[in-house]
């Protein structure tokens, strides 16, 4: 029971500070589940994130997997629900008021300011994930190569994940 309560409290808290989507939350989720609670090591965290990316669906599947890893099916449901529910209630009530808010003069500086911080969080997420998954020089090169290819082409990320899996399966990474 206490495992489920831990998951519920942690992800309810994280969900309410989630600016800019789930990717921006990775540094905080990793800090909590790896450093603070010690539920897994950074490498396992990176593996769960990878699976969540390779599966169809929203990025918050990372949280589903963390719940599953820590406390099975109940953990998966509790962690996902805790992350989703408080913001969902807020969205529900705000979606009416938004029509009136969107032209407000304070909205532009608020959105620009939040965006600046969010971009930093996503960059931090990238740095932490590279650090956790760069287990060899080839792995580091693969991460950097992926970044360059994605910035220069319109290739679907799934092909790159498949390529990475193939290289790794051959024992090259």
């Amino acid at each position: 029971m206490s495992k489920l309560l831990d998951l519920a409290l942690l992800f309810a808290k994280i969900g309410m500070v989630a600016v800019g989507g789930v990717i921006a939350l990775i540094p905080e989720i990793q800090r909590e589940v790896v450093s603070v609670h010690g539920w897994m090591d950074a490498h396992t965290f990176a593996t769960l994130f990878t699976l969540a990316q390779a599966a169809p669906g929203p990025n918050l599947l990372l949280v589903t997997l963390i719940g599953w890893y820590h406390a099975g099916l109940a953990g998966a449901l509790v962690a996902t629900g805790a992350l989703v529910l408080p913001p969902a209630i807020l969205t529900y009530f705000l979606s009416n008021a938004w029509r009136r808010l969107r032209g407000a003069p304070w909205l532009a500086p608020v959105q620009t300011g939040m965006n600046a911080v969010t971009v930093g969080l996503i960059a931090a997420a990238g740095i932490l994930l590279v650090r956790a998954s760069a287990v060899s020089w080839v792995a580091l090169a693969l991460a950097i190569g992926t970044t360059i290819v994605l910035l220069r082409t319109k290739i679907h990320p799934l092909w790159l994940l498949a390529g990475g899996a193939a290289l790794g399966a051959l024992g090259l990474v």
């Binding site: 996503i122 991460a143 790159l160 790794g168």
Partner: peptide
């Protein structure tokens, strides 16, 4: 499997870095 996951994890990390750069 261990190797494939290693390779995929490196790519997944690169996806996030690319997202950060695209937004910046």
């Amino acid at each position: 499997v261990i190797g494939a996951l290693r390779g995929m994890s490196a790519v997944a990390a690169g996806l996030v870095v690319a997202l950060g750069v695209k937004l910046a």
